[in-house]
Design a binder for these strands. Sequence first.
DNA 1: TTAAGCGTTGCAAAAAAGGACACACCCGCA
DNA 2: TGCGGGTGTGTCCTTTTTTGCAACGCTTAA
Lengths: 308, 308
Amino acid sequence: MRHMLALKYVDAVARAGSIRGAAEVLAITPSALNRRILAIEEELDIEIFERHAQGVRLNSAGELFIHHVRAQMADLERVRSQIADLSGVRIGHVRIATTKEIGGRLLPRLIQAYRADFPGVTFSLHAYDRGQVEQQLHNLEADIVVMFQPLRLADMQVISHQQQHLSVAMAADHPLAAQPELRLVDFLEHNPLLPPRGEGIREIVEAACVKKGLNCKPTIESDDSALLRHLARQGAGLALDLPLTISASPQESELAYRPFKAHEIEPGFLFVGQLHKRNLPVAARKFADQLREMFEREMERLPKIETP
Amino acid sequence: MRHMLALKYVDAVARAGSIRGAAEVLAITPSALNRRILAIEEELDIEIFERHAQGVRLNSAGELFIHHVRAQMADLERVRSQIADLSGVRIGHVRIATTKEIGGRLLPRLIQAYRADFPGVTFSLHAYDRGQVEQQLHNLEADIVVMFQPLRLADMQVISHQQQHLSVAMAADHPLAAQPELRLVDFLEHNPLLPPRGEGIREIVEAACVKKGLNCKPTIESDDSALLRHLARQGAGLALDLPLTISASPQESELAYRPFKAHEIEPGFLFVGQLHKRNLPVAARKFADQLREMFEREMERLPKIETP
DNA sequence: TTAAGCGTTGCAAAAAAGGACACACCCGCA
DNA sequence: TGCGGGTGTGTCCTTTTTTGCAACGCTTAA
């Protein structure tokens, strides 16, 4: 939209942290960009950016303004998709932010199914750590978030949440696979493969260890859950997974999953959320609906772990 | 704001119902305006207006778009006032839509008090019939509405509501002023002065008459409540008022107020509201707060009419 | 002290927007 | 049925706005 150019410029400068940097991204000269920023500040009758020697930074008025700008841009997208929706072809773009546990396992099938119905809809899918996920939502850079163990639920409107008992992934021929359920000490003593501190799964394991006075020292630590699963399949140790990500992804026959012994470890929660009070574009809203349905369907299918 | 010119143009055309008409309002030539409209339609990749021989009209895509445009303009105002507020001076403009019963009696004092604290805030105040009031809210042409007996509460977020028993206004020396409370038949037989059909007060009286099988024929009917009150003061008959508008306006010693006999007539409700989910500009929000407080304070002061 | 980065400014060129006018069209009315 | 007044729109030309280029003054880090 041509008429939002000025706002795009402000957004770019705020992101880049400098006028020259933003100018390069926008493929215009710094002087032109600078003049537009000055013009906007004059119209608002207040400065939006603090000028420093190494660039610019939003001041408090600027924070207010940039929030308006981003909300406006997001809302325009919503209107466009709504308009497209009434002319028959559903188009749009759905931006999803996830934590690493979710990875590429939970969503691909659903996205593919959705795109089969609406090929005009495109997706972007990025994994961050937990704090960043929530910030993506706040900055309107993500429409939907899927995350395990949110830090703060502020600003987040829950679309669906499901309780998840951690499940131990191991090679099918692993000796412990003979047991129907595992004790925490056994897990810790057979080469635990864990995500780094700060992620939701790790947090839960650490909490359980503290409670039992055990020492949690992973054999291998990685932020790539596919890598950990791969190692488990090769017999390198024991990885952890969430029931939903197991259930919703293609079966890997070489892997066996076993639950922990009841009450040894607390369950966590998998959340799907959007920004509080925000009107999502049609495409994102419909996708979120399907996501919720899929979650509920899959949780139905899963063997119930009773918590009496 | 210069960067919203295009949107202002669309809004003007939608309002005027023709490009030439809007062009005159905007003080530009029709051809220039036409080109901008065409450009916007091209950017949206869809037509916004239906072209007819007698002008243009929004199509359904246009309805969606114009709603976005107006929301955007309103939100920008909010941000401006928020920015101004953080630099200490509260500025802004508060647009109030009321029904005629409210008239100029309920609000002037409060507005004056508010402006004494914040002279940078200006007000506009218009009276409409009930349907139009709600439409003003919906079209973002009013920030706050004050109305008696809303038709539909859709889209309206209630800021405050107060039950109001109608009170009969008469000359202080009117024979009926001797009675502590009036019967409906007495009211009807002593020259009732009523607002026209469609307004809230009239609706309540009509309902009470239907219930009792009485005939409601006002001696004088007018949409100007000040005029009716004036007539009552001169002994021309009996007018009706709401407790809050009496209480909050300067005392008129020549007027006596008497309640109806209990249960003869249903009470109505006076509402203060804003558009559902909308973020009001600072000035409007603070004013709405004061309005609510004033209502509650005044209702406290009023003699309670018990409804056992 | 120097060098590199930054925002900012004057000036000329390019681009966008606007004005004036003419045209084609549709509608109500004679 | 033709006519007049209303509409949106296209074209040419002028005016205004925006941009690119080069230079300046400034702060910071080496």
